[in-house]
Computed example of a mutant assay.
Amino acid sequence: MMDRSVGSGSPYRIAVFASGQGSNFQTLIDASHKGILGAEIVLLVCNKPEAPVVERARRAGIDCFLFERKAYSRREDYEAEIAAELERRGVDLIVLAGYMLLLTPVLVDAYQGRMINIHPSLLPSFPGKDAIGQAWSYGVKVTGVTVHLVDGGMDTGPVIAQKIVEIEQADTIEALEEKIRAAEHDLYPQVVNWFAEGRIRIDGRKITIS
Score class of each variant (00 low, 15 high):
I116D: 05
E177V: 02
K179N: 06
C46F: 10
G61R: 06
A84N: 12
R74A: 04
V108R: 07
Q134V: 04
A39G: 05
T156F: 10
T143I: 09
D155A: 12
Q134S: 05
A161Q: 07
E166D: 13
G113F: 12
A84E: 15
S8F: 15
N193A: 11
G153V: 11
L96T: 06
K48A: 02
P158R: 00
I29T: 08
G38I: 03
T27I: 00
E81L: 15
G38L: 02
E55Q: 11
V91K: 09
P124L: 14
Y12M: 05
P52M: 01
P52K: 03
P52N: 01
D63S: 13
I41P: 02
D203I: 03
E177Q: 07
K163F: 02
E79N: 13
C64Y: 06
A131F: 10
I14L: 15
I180N: 07
Y138A: 11
P124E: 13
A175G: 11
V53L: 04
A51K: 10
P52G: 00
R88P: 00
A170Y: 01
K34S: 14
E197S: 06
L102Y: 06
A18C: 06
A161R: 12
W194C: 07
P189L: 06
S210W: 11
I164R: 07
A183G: 07
L101I: 04
T172E: 12
E178M: 04
K70P: 03
E76P: 02
A31W: 02
M115G: 03
I164F: 02
R13V: 11
F126Y: 12
Y72M: 06
I29F: 02
S210R: 13
A57S: 05
A84C: 07
G22F: 00
M154A: 14
K129C: 15
R56S: 12
I41Y: 06
E50G: 08
D130F: 09
P127E: 00
A80Y: 00
F67C: 13
P120C: 01
R13W: 12
V165C: 12
G139Y: 11
S10H: 01
I94N: 08
M154L: 15
G204R: 02
R69S: 15
P11I: 11
E40L: 09
I118S: 06
H119P: 11
Q134R: 03
F195W: 02
T143F: 09
G157A: 14
Q169A: 15
E81V: 15
F126K: 11
A161S: 05
Y78T: 02
P105E: 15
C46P: 12
H148F: 09
L123H: 01
I160F: 09
M115E: 05
P52V: 00
D130T: 12
L37H: 08
A161T: 03
R88K: 14
E168Y: 10
P127D: 01
L93I: 07
L93Q: 06
I160K: 10
G198M: 02
K163D: 09
V145A: 12
L44M: 05
A131G: 11
E81S: 14
V45Q: 11
G22W: 00
M1D: 02
S32G: 15
V165G: 13
A183P: 02
G90W: 06
S8G: 04
R75C: 03
S121Y: 08
R75G: 08
D92K: 10
R58T: 05
L176D: 14
A135V: 03
K34R: 15
I160H: 09
G133H: 07
V53F: 00
H33S: 15
G204V: 04
V147H: 04
